[in-house]
Design a protein around this nucleic acid. Structure first.
Lengths: 205, 205
DNA sequence: GTCTATGAATAAAA
DNA sequence: TTTTATTCATAGAC
């Protein structure tokens, strides 16, 4: 096809990352002369050490986060409550409805059919195997979920009750990164199975 | 205090919008022949009318929003509390820490916390697969973290041949939700460890 | 669910 | 701040 005139790029392909980086660096050197190292690699999920950088990014990302929250509430007609404390302790908050944050959060105890409830059902129904399912309210039931359940088991076997909030957050991050890596590999290996093994999202809205 | 939601300046120049749109449309016609209207203009900030589309968008944007919230809390060392109710009334939440936010969530204390116990019991009952020890209690634990990271990655790769992308994504979701539930309980039980695994900086802004 | 082109967010610099 | 180059998120099509 004669399309993609000029800028067809494979996104998120790890193997091309180095090359891209090098080209960018080279270009920077060429044009700027002495200023290099201008562009970043991928953002690492780790606390930013430099105080100034951290503050600048906080401002930018906070803005972006609030914008996203606002868009979600409008586009999808969802209720959103967001509270952020800067490292300095300053409070920023957003609530989609005209009620207070406390009221929104307070609804947690009034909503019986939540994700937490779904987890309860899943745990209760599990026999022998840890069939952790988030939406198994309706129809389909796990069939060949054994592999996935193994991971769920391992994750849950961690004595999660002994972990601090920071540890939980760290674990979450680690899992996310690991999965991202595995997914990237899967993407390069066409041997993957593309099947859908789990129940569909419940049709109730 | 209300955040300046919606007051961000668009980097792009408005006057170029039409031109860009037209070029995209023209390109689409050229390349696809019969496939048209494939690309979007910029997102309109109003409620999505189509139910299916709205549901799909909700899932995608919710994921993105929670990821952003998580990243902000880690990168910028901020405290973030996010609660989202889907149009169906389903609850999704994320909290980076219990400090200072605890009072806001004070009314959530009545959430049945049997879920955590159920999960742990289910996991223990199906033990025998692997026993994992987590130790992130040190202050600067590059070794432990790296070790855990390796484990997580290795564990995931072991069954990567058997796992589809869908399964990986599902697992990620499960872990996230489970951790959210655990965090919710942590907030109600401050007697748990509240230590931080990472180094602290003295001069917080 | 996956895939991919494109709009949007944003890190670094000005 | 504003600009720019790049990564990131995601709408639309499967």
């Amino acid at each position: 096809m004669a399309e993609d005139v000029g800028r067809r790029r494979m996104q998120q392909q790890q193997e091309e990352e180095e090359d891209e980086r090098l080209k960018a660096a080279a270009a920077a050197v060429e044009e700027g002369g002495g200023k290099m190292k201008r562009k970043r690699g991928r953002v690492e999920l780790r606390r930013i050490e430099d105080r100034t950088s951290r503050q600048v990014r906080f401002s930018k990302r906070r803005s972006g986060l609030f914008k996203k929250a606002f868009e979600l509430s409008v586009l999808c007609d969802a209720e959103v409550a967001l509270v952020v404390f800067s490292p300095a302790g300053r409070l920023y908050e957003f609530v989609s409805s005209d009620t207070s944050v406390e009221q929104i959060f307070g609804r947690c105890k009034d909503i019986p059919d939540t994700i937490i409830d779904d987890l309860n059902i899943a745990a209760r129904d599990s026999r022998g195997y840890c069939n952790i399912q988030l939406d198994l309210n309706e129809q389909s039931v796990p069939e060949s979920v054994s592999e996935l359940n193994s991971f769920a088991q391992m994750a849950l076997e961690l004595d999660v009750k002994e972990m601090s909030m920071a540890e939980l957050t760290r674990f979450e991050e680690i899992v996310r990164e690991a999965l991202a890596a595995v997914k990237a590999r899967l993407r390069r290996d066409p041997q993957k199975k593309g099947d859908n093994w789990s129940g569909q999202e419940s049709g109730k809205e």
